[in-house]
């Protein structure tokens, strides 16, 4: 059941992405309505797929990185639906859903089985908390990235003084900056706590923290970028473009981190 329902969910996300992008350039309200329905349908199917997987495996569907990314995507979509409502940013889907799709590709192609001894390696409740917290952080950073991207695009329109389609469709800079800040403030504590737990657990289970694990190393680079941005915002009053650029760089590092975990040999497996 797992692959078919998940495939349907991803199909829903693909449809929602196309519709959202169309809505960005073509102001037809029905496109937005259908996109919302497709997003929600994809999300519900995704939830069913994850639940089915959890029942079959008899453990949370977080046993491999691709499973965890799948759950992170699921949380990100939920968060996006909420943010869209909260901030009234109807074009949000066009910026979040492509990222969702990119992150979904791996979980759709990789089958989550065939990692021998995973339960033993992952044993202990703390590891689930580690994974759970980190992936909520990742979900928040998907939104953080989308907000930053919209900010940079809108800022460019305003500076160039030649209003194009995006000028009319994107919200104002202050709203976008607030969105970027809040998602950073939301994601950062999750990522931090998750990483600390990971370090503690790794120290006990593996005897060392970073040895030979590219994902662990890169994740600390991403964490440092987000920490720097947050500090800059809080202490030096960084706002606007600079904060947006950092959010984009931070997210790129995060995606690189996940990529490294999925495709390079290391202890996080695939």
């Amino acid at each position: 059941m797992y692959p078919t329902v998940l495939d349907l969910a991803i199909f829903g996300y693909i449809a929602a992405t196309g519709l959202s992008l169309a809505y960005l350039v073509q102001r037809e309200e029905w496109l937005h309505r259908v996109a919302s329905v497709a997003t929600i349908a994809g999300w519900v199917l995704h939830a069913v797929a994850l639940l089915a997987l959890a029942f079959r495996l008899g453990r949370p569907p977080l046993g491999s990185l691709s499973e965890a990314v799948s759950v992170a995507v699921w949380v990100a979509v939920l968060l996006a639906l909420w943010v869209e409502r909260q901030y009234g940013v109807k074009v949000l889907g066009a910026f979040v859903l492509p990222v969702v799709l990119v992150l979904s590709i791996n979980s759709a192609t990789t089958r989550p089985l065939g990692i021998p001894g995973i339960e033993r390696a992952l044993g202990g409740a703390w590891i689930w908390v580690h994974i759970g917290l980190v992936l909520i952080g990742i979900a928040a950073f998907v939104l953080n990235f989308a907000g930053a991207l919209m900010y940079v695009l809108q800022e460019r329109q305003l500076k160039a003084k030649r209003p194009g389609t995006l000028y009319y469709r994107l919200p104002d800079l202050e709203t976008l900056d607030r969105l970027t800040y809040r998602t950073l403030a939301l994601g950062f504590p999750f990522l931090t706590t998750g990483l600390i737990l990971g370090v503690l657990w790794a120290g006990r289970a593996w005897g060392s923290v970073f040895a030979y694990d590219p994902l662990a190393l890169l994740s600390f680079v991403a964490w440092a970028i987000y920490a720097g941005t947050l500090a800059g915002r809080a202490a030096a009053g960084w706002r606007g473009r600079r904060a947006a650029y950092f959010a984009i760089i931070g997210f790129a590092t995060l995606v690189l981190t996940l990529g490294a975990g999925l495709f390079l040999p290391g202890r996080h497996g695939s």
Binding site: Y167, D172, L173
Partner: peptide, 8 residues
């Protein structure tokens, strides 16, 4: 309108 694209 421009002001309203800069400020919320």
């Amino acid at each position: 309108e421009l002001a309203r694209k800069i400020f919320a």
